[in-house]
Amino acid sequence: MKRVVMTMILGALSLNAVAETPWLVRARAVHIDTADKSDPVAGAGASDRLSVSSRTIPEVDISYFFTQHIAAELVLTYPQKHDVYLDGKSIGTFRHLPPTLLAQYHFLPGAQFDPYVGAGVNWTTFSKNRLLNGAASLEHDSVGLAVQAGVDVKLTGNWSLNLDVKKMRLRSDVLIGGVKASAVRVDPVLLGVGVGYRF
């Protein structure tokens, strides 16, 4: 009987240890809603402005918990393609890769609903600029502040449902012949839903 009780206790401790491991991986579907703002384009009409398309992308996020309340999250995806418009007319595309590192505070770790907030830095690199048949391009990099709020909802075992919203500062000058012709403020809001697994 003692052996059975000890086995049950050790099993419970083992399950608790698994639940308290520091790694959490999430997979999300994220809708990028761009701010769609720019300065007037040099050489064009005063009302002619650039706009960047919104889109939905896959996202993988890796979190490490330093304590029950404090975690760091690395946001990853693959290069994303966006259409660019001038006064509503397509002028080309570009790709961007936007890894983001956030520090998070979790309010109710271990609870059924665990809301959190975060803040950190977004670094975006632009590539494959095909604007105005190659006559225009974007600056190579953008670095800006990122903020976040979300909630993890426990499902079963180590699985959870995740709802998340982020706001990022993402901007770039537009160059024509190496000279600044405009500035684009993408500044997206990212609305995400997905699942997480605590290792």
Rank of each mutant, 00 (worst) to 15 (best):
D36K: 10
L170V: 12
S63C: 04
L108W: 11
F94T: 03
F126R: 09
L191I: 13
A103K: 00
R49L: 04
T124F: 03
V193T: 08
I62Q: 04
V174D: 00
D33F: 02
L163F: 12
V153L: 14
D87Y: 06
A19R: 12
K128T: 02
D114E: 12
I9S: 05
P58W: 08
R169P: 00
D83L: 01
R55A: 04
Y64E: 09
A17D: 09
T67W: 08
V41K: 12
V174A: 09
G110E: 05
G120Y: 02
K89S: 09
G120K: 05
P115V: 06
P99L: 04
V179S: 12
I91R: 02
S63H: 05
G118D: 01
D164C: 03
V5L: 14
G144K: 07
V151K: 07
E59N: 09
L170E: 04
V193N: 01
K128W: 03
R55M: 07
V195F: 15
K166T: 13
L190N: 02
Y197I: 11
P98W: 07
D83M: 01
W159N: 04
L190Q: 12
G196D: 06
R171Q: 15
V153H: 09
I32C: 11
I32D: 06
D141A: 07
Q104Y: 03
